[in-house]
Amino acid sequence: MSSKKGFSRRGFLQGAGVGGVLGTGLLEREAEAAPAGAAIAGPGAVPITLTINGKPVNLTVEPRVTLIDALRDYVDLTGAKRVCDRGTCGACTVLMNGKSVYSCSVLAIDAQGKSIETIEGMTSPEKMHPVSQAFWENDAQQCGYCTSGFVVACKGFLDEHPNPTEEDVKHGLGGNLCRCGTYMGVRAAALQAAKQMKGGKNG
């Protein structure tokens, strides 16, 4: 779960008055992997291509637009939610190259060249991923606003930890918050899904 770090990237960039210049340590690292010439973009809207759920998607966004806002407002993938908008709650979790990230803390332009998997790509009511199925069976959702983030984070966690103990689950999903108090269901769901994913080779 080390890829989940809170960065106040947008406030930082704007506060520093540097528009779309890639300035933080995190972003520099990301920039190394980006194509040459991508180090400066904006401040106006720029065309970008994101790979979302296996398909290339072309968008025109300002460099300061976060991945969560790009997904929700430009692509209408609204499963991931924007709640704290500051890397604390996990409601915006998506998988980037297979790892959980807070999509409120990633700029859309920096997500280019990565494979982005959202809850919509991972599971559907008609063909539920074992994690979703386990969330349903263990009643791991009430209002449901945190649930997409939890389900995606749970998949990301189980992909890396196929045999978790309950203690592992508490640590592994500690980056997601729920106000309705569904944690008992989530613990049981994560353990059940782990069993099923091993048996069914799903995920």
């Binding site: 609204t78 919509e120 349903w136 009643d139 606003y145």
Partner: peptide, 21 residues
């Protein structure tokens, strides 16, 4: 009985007011 809106919630398909466009 399992929550009837479990499947739409556990797959991110439930549309909230803040998802409405």
């Amino acid at each position: 009985v399992k929550r009837l809106d479990g499947p739409v919630k556990a797959t991110g398909r439930a549309k909230y007011a803040s998802d409405t466009k």
